[in-house]
Design a protein around this nucleic acid. Structure first.
Lengths: 157, 157
DNA sequence: TATTGTTATACTCTATAACTATA
DNA sequence: TATAGTTATAGAGTATAACAATA
């Protein structure tokens, strides 16, 4: 009986398509984008039941932890341009999750708040996202995951 | 004389906008996306002299290291949908950087190659990108940068 | 019958200019 | 004069269906 073939270990970095991507592999930007997109794929798949995009969720979560925050504050925090924020909040409002109240001290600004159903949604959605994150980064140990978070923050902060 | 006010150290994580983003901060997906976008900002700024987007550069670099690769291979490697790849390669061709030659064995496929000026461009562009990456991740030590690369690959590979 | 490259097309995302009302 | 929110709009990026040529 013949012995099984030995494991083939590629000497040069080669993708599953047979292409050499050795230069791109050295780039933090390239790898961070690929990692983010792979997690976002899982996000969209699991969060489709709530009808929430990544940005929808980020906005709702920030309002939940910062009731009364203004559009301008959220735009700055999430790097969203104000004109693009209008229809975004409008959609969250129309779906009954966010309400806009006059700002207590600045007549130009509008304070954003969650409705009861919005708050309930965020509680469920944050649990789903926490679980999805663990699953989408399953190859990382808890310690590696924390190290990755710290290093990523160091890049863009 | 009054003593100076003590340094105020925030107990909860607070962004520069004054908003608490403590939940989002725990997410690899969120932080990887923010880190990638911050590096891509620097990329677009510096690479505008070449007229290259992130995807343009990725395609050119892959062709450089894999002469004769087909559209299908590049689409799979870079997660691009074939219909969107047509005008992308057409633009690189029109600018004189890529040429399309018949595939030696498969009559349906087309082999992609760099022209002389395309090869020269990739040499310069790869140097610029390597430098830009160092600058955009300047807060990381060489060892941290390598750790970050390894952990990111572990997420999406 | 399956695959490569392609066209057409629609939808989303992102960006800029300009307006209004308040500060 | 500057800022918050908004409108209109253009451009880039991403998605699906369907077709011709070749395997």
């Amino acid at each position: 009986m013949a012995s099984p073939p030995p494991e083939v270990v590629p000497v040069s970095p080669v993708t599953s398509t047979g292409l050499d991507s050795s230069f791109l592999d050295t780039l933090v930007g390239y790898n961070a984008r690929r990692a983010a997109l792979s997690i976002i794929d899982v996000f969209m798949e699991r969060m489709s039941v709530y009808g929430l995009t990544v940005v929808d969720f980020s906005v709702l979560s920030l309002i939940a932890h910062n009731p009364g925050a203004t559009s301008r504050q959220l735009c700055t925090a999430l790097n969203i341009l104000p004109p693009n924020f209008v229809s975004l909040v409008g959609s969250l409002d129309k779906r009954g999750w966010v309400s806009r109240k006059p700002h207590p001290t600045d007549g130009r600004a509008i304070g954003l708040h969650l409705t009861r159903s919005g708050a309930a949604l965020v509680r469920k959605a944050e649990q789903s996202v926490a679980q999805l994150e663990i699953d989408a980064t399953a190859r990382l140990s808890a310690e590696e995951r924390q190290t990755l978070l710290d290093l990523l923050k160091k890049v863009y902060t």
